[in-house]
């Protein structure tokens, strides 16, 4: 008797979402099986990694994270270019962190102008994140949509409080949106329904389920991503059949384990290695849970994860 690997039968499929524009479109989604279960179904588009770029020079980063970008940190355009040219970034994730009213409170039009410059400077798909401040994000992301018309940016987070304003603007200027909910499958589904009611096309929605860092509630995020995927693939939950983005780099690089220097915490070992591994491990976990886009920071962590994706995408005999 030969051994047969038991196979899951899938009834659903993740929607394919084209990101970016023109010849440089990168499609995500399209899976018809669990992450890397290539023996059960198809994964037409392997998960992608977006490299973070910040709108203003970061102040609270550990040197280990800033070091690869030290020469470009104050210039988002140069930073984005470096990510693409030097590190081969597949996508850029622009974090408009300085728009936070509790930080510099950069005005919306200024943030939009920065975004425009970055989007003009790179050909890869551009993801744009606000700061999860409902009112300010509405202002900023509306301006971004308008200024970058036709670029098919991926903008977010859209939450319960501002999905209408940002969603409608995104429809008007033809961008893709990230529906963000706080680690809850039902809220995620509800927001997708609401976006559908608003007439946001199904090929313009990405789920942002909120992702924490390794050791900081990652297991909870993992379960939610896994459940969203299960619901989408097996339980015919049509409103959850969207690709998932995991925006965790900013969570990882603010943890104590990453920030403490070696003299401060000799037991934790080499500080840089620690940070890189923390980020790579977080990425690896959400990859296995079902994420399609990983927002990452450190080039070395990215290389580790890219290798891992390549390995996982090799189709075996079984």
């Amino acid at each position: 008797m030969t051994f047969e690997i038991p196979k899951v039968s899938y009834s659903g499929k993740i929607k394919e979402i084209p990101l970016g524009r023109g010849e440089n479109i990168i499609t995500v989604g399209g899976e018809s099986c669990y992450p890397f279960h290539l023996f059960e179904g198809a994964i037409p588009h392997p998960p992608k990694i977006a490299m973070e770029v910040y709108d203003k020079e970061p102040e609270d980063w550990p040197d280990t994270a800033l070091e690869p970008f030290a020469d470009v940190a104050g210039d988002p355009v140069a930073w984005a270019r470096k990510c693409v040219d030097t590190y081969g970034a597949e996508m850029i994730a622009l974090q408009l962190a300085s728009t936070d009213p509790n930080a510099e409170d950069t005005p919306a039009d200024e943030a939009a102008a920065i975004t425009k410059k970055v989007s003009d400077a790179v050909d890869v798909p551009l993801i744009v994140f606000g700061t999860s401040n409902t009112d300010k994000d509405t202002e900023v992301l509306k301006a971004v949509c308008e200024t970058c018309e036709g670029k098919n940016l991926i903008i977010g987070p859209l939450g319960e409080g501002n999905y209408r304003a940002i969603g409608a603007t995104a429809i008007g200027y033809k961008h893709t949106v990230m529906a963000s909910t706080p680690i809850d499958i039902n809220l995620a589904k509800q927001l997708n329904i609401l976006l559908g009611n608003l007439n946001v096309p199904d090929d313009k929605i990405i789920i942002d389920p909120t992702t924490g860092a390794l050791g900081y509630g990652l297991e909870y995020c993992y379960s939610v991503i896994e459940r969203i995927r299960t619901a989408a693939l097996i339980q015919e939950d049509e409103r959850l059949q969207f690709p998932i983005i995991a925006n965790f780099a900013k969570e990882v690089w603010k943890t104590k384990e990453v920030k403490l220097s070696e003299p401060e915490a000799p037991l934790l070992g080499d500080q840089k290695k620690r940070g890189v591994l923390m980020e790579a491990m977080t990425a690896q976990c959400v990859l296995l849970a079902g994420a399609d886009i990983l927002v990452m920071r450190h080039p070395e962590a990215i290389n580790l994860v890219k290798e891992s994706i390549q390995d996982l995408m090799i189709k075996g005999e079984g």
């Binding site: 509306k142 209408r164 409608a168």
Partner: peptide
């Protein structure tokens, strides 16, 4: 026009 959609 967007104000009509977002409820402003």
């Amino acid at each position: 026009g967007v104000e009509f959609v977002d409820g402003t």
